[in-house]
């Protein structure tokens, strides 16, 4: 890889992409797959990007979308094929929230309509504000809020079994 611009892009934003994917998927391997997918897709069209791209917002959205896609593809094999992996830095699980519940939530998120899934991940898992989400998704703040409410209502239905 010789292109300095692309190498710098990867250097500057790898952590952002990996974090977004890792939080949704809870797996290092899967997060690395998403990282690979996101940057490979950009490299394929590298020539077509001009200097106007707002990389953090663009990459962040790509990472969240790809992570959701990845969760969709892997949600069926997860329970059988998952290998427990060491956690990266971060606090231990709360006593009440089990790994199974997190896996279940990731699977349920992947079943939401894409826009709802994106908003939920950005708002609740990534801690973005409605304003920031509206900016990334280029929609109105109220739209982001509506998506969040709908996503949460649907996810709660899927989660009743844990009560």
């Amino acid at each position: 890889m010789q292109d300095k611009g692309f190498t710098k892009l990867v250097d500057d934003h790898s952590r952002l992409v990996l974090n977004a994917a890792y939080r949704v998927l809870g797996s290092r391997t899967s997060a690395e797959d998403v990282h690979q997918d996101v940057f490979t897709a950009i490299w394929q069209r590298w020539e077509s990007f001009n200097g106007d791209t707002s990389w953090p917002a663009y990459l962040y959205r790509c990472a969240v979308r790809k992570a959701i896609d990845h969760a969709k593809a892997s949600r069926k094999t997860r329970s059988i094929d998952a290998i427990s992996e060491p956690a990266a830095t971060g606090s231990a699980d709360s006593a009440a929230i089990t790994t199974e519940m997190k896996d279940k939530l990731a699977a349920c998120i992947s079943k939401l309509p894409d826009r709802q899934a994106e908003v939920f991940v950005m708002y609740r898992i990534e801690g973005k504000s409605y304003n920031q989400i509206a900016e990334v998704l280029q929609c109105k703040l109220q739209t982001a809020r509506v998506h969040m409410h709908r996503a949460l209502t649907q996810l709660a239905k899927d989660f009743k079994e844990y009560l």
Binding site: T89, S91, S94, M101, I125, L163
Partner: peptide
């Protein structure tokens, strides 16, 4: 309660980051 559980679970997911 179920909504709150989802929010708590998602909150836990947000607490990790890569090294």
């Amino acid at each position: 309660e179920s909504i709150r559980l989802v929010l708590e679970c998602a909150g836990q997911m947000s607490k990790v980051s890569v090294d």
